[in-house]
Amino acid sequence: MKYNQLGVSELFVSELSFGCMSLKEDFSTSERLIHNAFEKGINYFDTADLYQNGYNEEVLGRSIKNFRKDVIIATKVGNQIREDGKNWDWNPRKSYILKAVEDSLKRLQTDYIDLYQLHGGTIDDPIDETIEAFEILKREGKIRYYGISSIRPNVIKEYVKQSNMVSVMMQYSLLDRRAEEECLQLLYDHNIGVLARGGLAKGILAGKPAKEYLDYNTTETKKVIDKLTQISIATNKTICNTALQFVIQQPTITSAVLGIRTAHQLEECLATLQTIPLLSEELEVLYKISKANTYDLHR
């Protein structure tokens, strides 16, 4: 397993990492999967206070308590659960963040969070107030670093200008190259790490049937999968392996965050690291057959 430095932080993150949102509610199954991932070299585990109304954080905290100091815990804040437990409201205010972190720390059974991320964000937020909350938590030692999870170029640009964030989590895959237009180079230039989620495009790039995805219709998606399959067969890989290589070979990507549900999925994703990297001409073909999508909003 290769470990990449996350921006200017002292965190070195496995190039494939574990997105906990997809974990099942059965604790013993989830614990085995998390332990398996850790034993295979994955050291970055990403969750959020929103997932399963906090239960996802509890599962992760209980699962890694015996090797807490050997892993990087990332969680997120900003979505305030309503009393009915079914809906939530966006709340990036300082007072809420300072309160929410205490609840996350309890659920995670830890006294510090390695990476605390704003879970979304709009250009109309009180961004200076949000940043102040994160800086206070850093000084108090409750978090080591902070970042944002956002796909909105205008929000990302503001945090680049105003904050000391070390990372941005954003969607990036062969079928979603929107980040290339404005964000990836900007973050690279400022030495801010990129945590890429959605690298398998909801499973479409891992064997699920072709369907509409962003600005691709089903026929267009199928053409991409067909070419991906050709390259994969020629290089003795699965399409999952090739799709993930497309992501992690992008020089601006620190880690591909994978929503893993089963041991089989974990093994197939990890097998990517044992295959020969894509050649420049193969990458060029993949760039040509896919779209350089752009964001319509939040520019």
Score class of each variant (00 low, 15 high):
186 L>R: 12
272 T>P: 07
249 Q>V: 02
286 L>P: 00
130 T>K: 13
184 L>N: 08
144 R>M: 10
98 L>M: 12
244 L>N: 12
249 Q>M: 12
140 E>I: 01
254 T>V: 14
248 I>L: 13
107 R>S: 06
41 G>I: 05
52 Q>W: 02
29 T>I: 06
146 Y>H: 08
170 M>N: 12
187 L>V: 05
105 L>G: 05
92 P>A: 10
129 E>A: 14
108 L>V: 05
164 N>P: 00
282 E>L: 03
147 G>W: 00
130 T>L: 10
113 I>N: 07
19 G>N: 03
198 G>Q: 03
17 S>R: 00
109 Q>W: 03
263 A>Q: 14
160 V>N: 07
45 F>H: 00
32 R>S: 14
34 I>F: 12
286 L>W: 01
82 R>W: 00
149 S>L: 03
242 T>R: 08
176 D>M: 02
133 A>M: 03
233 I>F: 12
283 L>W: 09
14 S>W: 05
284 E>G: 03
298 H>S: 11
7 G>V: 01
288 K>C: 02
16 L>Q: 11
35 H>I: 01
126 P>D: 14
158 E>S: 07
25 E>H: 13
93 R>F: 08
283 L>Y: 10
14 S>E: 09
93 R>G: 09
186 L>A: 15
178 R>T: 13
209 P>W: 09
145 Y>W: 08
145 Y>N: 09
127 I>R: 14
42 I>N: 07
135 E>S: 07
1 M>H: 11
42 I>M: 13
281 E>Q: 08
79 N>Y: 14
35 H>D: 15
22 S>W: 04
157 K>Q: 15
216 Y>S: 04
37 A>C: 11
150 S>K: 09
205 L>F: 04
117 Q>R: 12
204 I>R: 11
160 V>Y: 15
17 S>I: 03
119 H>T: 04
3 Y>T: 02
167 S>Y: 04
199 G>P: 01
216 Y>M: 06
31 E>K: 14
117 Q>G: 07
86 K>D: 06
107 R>I: 03
89 D>N: 15
292 A>M: 10
116 Y>S: 06
178 R>L: 08
37 A>I: 04
45 F>G: 00
126 P>C: 06
50 L>M: 07
182 E>C: 05
134 F>W: 03
84 D>S: 08
59 V>M: 15
